[in-house]
Design a protein around this nucleic acid. Structure first.
Lengths: 263, 263
DNA sequence: TCATCATAAATTGTTAACAATCTGTGATGA
DNA sequence: TCATCACAGATTGTTAACAATTTATGATGA
């Protein structure tokens, strides 16, 4: 079978699956909550990426999104512009929007930025945590462990992300919190591309020790634990193999993953 | 004529013209360069903010922008969404887009984030600078001094911003560079609101000493000089008086600066 | 079989008209 | 004088149709 014909078959397989995009448009929230439609789209896409339901390279068609969320294309376009500004989505003129595919270099930069930001967050968070914060974080750790035990990868990723973002919240700096939010999103894409198949995203005992240090308000320990935690995360990446997507197949064959895109 | 010089000339030509918004729509670049219209808008607005031609609170009307740049409102809306994603513009539903007015709390967070990021940039930049980089930075310092001497505030701000962004470029991390780009923009808004009238944005000898340390590849000195430089900058802010705009008048009277907006 | 090319379908980009909302102005009445 | 209200103008939000471009498909010929 020719490569061309093979691609066609794959396209058919992909398109005939009822939910083309693994994004949940929650009609309950949509009708009840006051949020603007474009915020709904942005939030849903970010959630989907954060839980690796949307792998890198996925096309985000305007029609598909406007159908999913029951709004017009103008809103979709604004949402995509917002996502592109966060470097989570790539806008190719006349071709559409695609979930960003981070290069190895970009991956290193993202993790370096995370170290810079989370170090400061750790220093600031020490001594500012309330008992509620500690309780939240400990509960989060058990949640992550449970998700990992049951093979619930999205749940595991969500828990891990929530852990880091909660620390940012404790530190009390909106700016750093937003930067970290973007970086964790991009980290998820990176992990999806470059981390060995079954590897978990965070070693749980590291999170536990971070909470211990936080509870003791041990600023120095908190900083060094956070730093090494991120270094371990980055060390687990493997850039030698070609970037792959979740299921090892469907990606190599996808028509949009052309070589010219490589950065 | 260099592209930069051309842009500057355009600025002068445009500012004495009727257009209410001090944004230059460079028709030369617009017609020749391949950039999308929305990128033109985003770039021009960012430039205008970076040089304090657009003070905090200025309304960015859709009609005005689409007239200025000769494009349709759809492009303007996308551009505004991009600017809003960078927290440089505030989108108020049904009311329009306004240049962000940072609160004192936001100001502190921005500078804390800058310290976190620029420290890492300093550490990475040490030992990576080329002779061209050093030459650029020394030239930049004299440019800034000259702008300060001639009372060219926009030129001074641009030079100072270019200095910090060049360091980020030297450090070689796109992610940190983009974050810093956003933060310097917001810093300019903050300085416009909270810094005493005549104060200059950066002490020039501090920049000079930073370049010296960079040339010596003295990582430790570079980090500490950068940190203290930012601390001096932040220490020069005055949050006691009410936030004011550049010309002390035109702002107090402006209809859009209502008290309910204060955060 | 393979590459090239033309054509049809699908997708993105643009435009203009219309609806909804906000803002400013002036009249009214206490 | 002051507050309230209605109305006209201006601005933002939405929609649908159309144009431009890309992508998929099939035919043609070496």
């Amino acid at each position: 079978m020719t490569r061309q014909a093979f691609c066609r078959r794959q396209v058919l397989q992909c398109t005939d699956a009822p939910p083309k995009l693994l994004i949940t448009s929650d009609y309950f929230l949509q009708s009840v909550m006051p949020g603007l439609p474009e915020d709904q789209i942005v939030g849903s896409v970010l959630d989907a990426i954060a839980e690796q339901r949307l792998p890198a390279g996925t096309k985000l068609g305007e029609q598909a999104l406007s159908d999913l969320f029951g709004c017009n294309r103008a809103n979709v376009r604004r949402a995509l512009a917002t996502l592109a500004a966060q470097h989570v989505v790539e806008l190719r003129p006349n071709r559409g929007a695609y979930v960003m595919t981070p290069s190895p270099r970009e991956a290193r930069n993202v993790f370096q930025a995370r170290r810079a930001i989370e170090r400061t967050i750790a220093r600031e968070a020490a001594g500012r945590s309330t008992p509620e914060d500690i309780a939240f974080l400990r509960r989060n750790i058990t949640e992550e462990a449970q998700a990992k035990a049951t093979g619930d990868k999205p749940g595991e990723l969500r828990a891990s992300r929530d852990f880091h973002l909660r620390l940012a919240r404790i530190a009390g700096n909106d700016v750093l919190e937003r930067f970290l939010s973007e970086l964790t999103m991009r980290s998820t894409l990176i992990l999806g591309l470059y981390s060995p198949q079954g590897s978990s995203c965070c070693a749980e005992d590291e999170h536990a020790r971070i909470v211990d240090a936080l509870e003791r308000a041990d600023s120095e320990a908190l900083v060094s634990l956070t730093t090494s935690h991120l270094e371990h995360l980055e060390a687990g990446l493997n850039f030698d193999d070609k970037p792959r997507a979740k299921l090892t197949l469907e990606d190599q064959l996808a028509p949009w993953r052309d070589p010219s895109q490589a950065v």
